[in-house]
Simulated scan of single mutants.
Amino acid sequence: MSAPERYLQNEDFFLGYTTEFTGTVTVSPPLNAHEIAYLRKFACTRRMMRTRGPYFADGSGSFGQGNDPDIIDFNRPPQGQPGLWCQWVPTGDGAGIEWDEDEKFYDAEEWMRYLIDHFLRPGAHAQRHAEFEKFTFNHTVDGEIYAQGEDPEDQWILYVTDNTVTTRS
């Protein structure tokens, strides 16, 4: 049982669980300006079911959470996305991906895999969409990021090797 699951079982009222991440994975070649801008916007918007599709990263209101008519469900991410918030962001120079330092980042491993499979690697899913014509889809991600949850025993490492994501406690 994971530390967050133990936390859930031991509390009468769950407010969330925070894991902090240290480190940056390397993106080679570095992201271009269009990729950096989009991935930052993607991470800054709530990932909700919308008629505009899973890659839509605009919307009205704070963090794209306005009462827009295209929203199907405010509390359900688009199919295939691990959760409502992706907190992996590109570094300023586009040579890495790191945690945005906001609290309560869930599904970190799955989100890293999603970014690589949809936006970064050769043959990525978004390559078939015209709005990504300025993406290169030629990146390789490598490195490790250390994770420390609120529970002192909740320590693990996220590894990325040649675009493959794994974890180890």
Rank of each mutant, 00 (worst) to 15 (best):
W111V: 03
T91W: 01
W111Q: 02
R113D: 12
Y38W: 04
Q87K: 15
G92C: 09
G92A: 15
E109M: 11
E101C: 13
Y106G: 05
R121N: 04
P77I: 13
P122E: 02
R40T: 11
T45R: 12
R47E: 06
Y55N: 04
P69A: 10
A43F: 05
G92Q: 12
N67L: 11
I72K: 00
S62A: 11
I116W: 03
I71M: 01
I97R: 00
L120R: 00
F119Q: 03
I36P: 00
P82M: 09
D102G: 07
G94D: 08
W99P: 03
E110Y: 08
P77V: 14
G94Y: 03
P54H: 04
M48L: 09
G59V: 05
F119M: 07
H118N: 13
D117Y: 14
M49C: 13
S62V: 15
C44P: 01
M49Y: 12
F119A: 04
W88A: 10
L84A: 09
D102E: 11
S62N: 12
W88S: 11
Q79A: 15
P54G: 15
N75W: 15
L84K: 04
Q79D: 15
I72E: 01
G83S: 09
G123V: 08
W85D: 00
R121D: 05
Q127S: 14
E103R: 14
R50A: 12
L39W: 00
G61S: 07
I116V: 10
C44K: 14
Q87C: 08
T91Y: 01
K41V: 09
F56R: 00
A108E: 05
P82A: 13
F63K: 15
L115T: 06
E109G: 09
F105W: 03
L115D: 02
F105Q: 00
G94Q: 08
E109Q: 13
R121E: 10
I116D: 00
F56S: 07
K104D: 10
R47A: 06
P90R: 00
P122M: 02
G53H: 03
F105M: 03
F74M: 13
D73L: 12
W99E: 03
D102S: 12
R47M: 06
P82H: 06
R50H: 06
G64Y: 00
E109R: 12
W99L: 07
I71V: 15
D70E: 11
V89W: 02
Q127G: 14
W85I: 08
D68G: 02
A43Y: 06
H125C: 07
R50G: 06
Q81F: 14
D70I: 15
G66K: 05
E98Q: 14
H125W: 11
P69S: 07
V89Q: 02
H118V: 15
Q87Y: 05
Q127D: 05
D73C: 11
A126C: 07
R40K: 15
E101Q: 13
N67F: 12
A37P: 01
G61A: 08
P77K: 03
F119D: 01
K41Q: 15
F42L: 13
F74Q: 09
E110S: 14
G66W: 01
I97M: 13
D100K: 10
I36G: 06
F105I: 02
N75D: 11
V89E: 02
P54T: 10
I71K: 01
I36R: 12
L84F: 10
P122C: 05
W99C: 10
Q87N: 11
I97S: 00
F56C: 10
